[in-house]
Amino acid sequence: MLKYIKGHMDSISGIEIYPIISLLIFFSFFVILFWWVFTAKKEYIKNVSNIPLDNQNDQIL
């Protein structure tokens, strides 16, 4: 089965660029996430982290 798939993959021209593009997208996402985490305002992080503990919007059914 693997030889069958590999044979078809070899016949596709330019297929070697897809793993490189996937790696760049993956790496870029985590670099941007890392940058956002360290540049986010501490007040915003505190407000967002307290949302689950905020009882003002809870309704008893």
Rank of each mutant, 00 (worst) to 15 (best):
Y18Q: 07
E16V: 09
Y4E: 10
Y44P: 00
Y44E: 01
N50Y: 13
K46E: 01
I5T: 01
I45M: 10
F29W: 04
I32H: 04
L24P: 00
A40Q: 13
E16H: 15
F38P: 03
S22A: 15
F30Y: 08
K41D: 10
S11V: 01
N47D: 05
I45E: 05
L2A: 06
S22I: 01
I12K: 10
L33Y: 08
L33K: 11
G7K: 15
F27S: 11
S49I: 06
V37G: 14
T39I: 03
K42T: 02
L23I: 09
A40G: 06
W36A: 15
I17Q: 11
L2E: 01
W35C: 04
D10G: 11
W36M: 15
I21R: 11
S49N: 13
I5C: 07
I17E: 09
F38E: 00
G14S: 00
N50D: 04
K41T: 00
V37R: 15
E43G: 13
P19H: 02
F30L: 03
S13V: 12
I21F: 10
F30R: 08
S22N: 06
H8A: 06
I15L: 14
K42Y: 02
W36L: 11
N50R: 12
I5P: 01
K3E: 00
A40W: 04
I25D: 02
K46S: 11
G14C: 08
I5R: 02
I21A: 15
G7N: 10
I21D: 08
K46P: 04
V48T: 06
I5M: 05
P19Q: 01
W36I: 10
W35N: 07
T39R: 13
G7D: 02
I17P: 06
K6N: 04
K41L: 02
N47G: 12
L33A: 14
F26H: 06
I25N: 02
V48Q: 08
A40M: 15
G7R: 06
Y4R: 12
F26M: 08
D10L: 13
F26N: 07
D10E: 14
H8Q: 11
M9H: 07
E16D: 14
V48Y: 15
E43Q: 14
G14V: 01
K42Q: 10
K6P: 00
E43A: 13
I45R: 15
Y18C: 03
F27V: 14
V48K: 12
I21V: 12
E16Y: 12
V31C: 09
S13I: 07
Y18F: 13
E16R: 15
F29N: 09
Y18N: 01
M1A: 15
K41M: 04
F38S: 02
N50Q: 14
T39E: 00
F29E: 04
K3T: 05
K41A: 02
W35H: 10
I15Q: 10
S11Q: 08
W36N: 12
F27W: 05
E43I: 12
F26G: 09
V31W: 02
F26C: 02
K46D: 05
N47P: 05
I25H: 02
M9N: 05
K6V: 03
G14Y: 06
M1R: 13
M1P: 06
T39W: 00
F38M: 07
S28N: 03
F38N: 12
K42M: 04
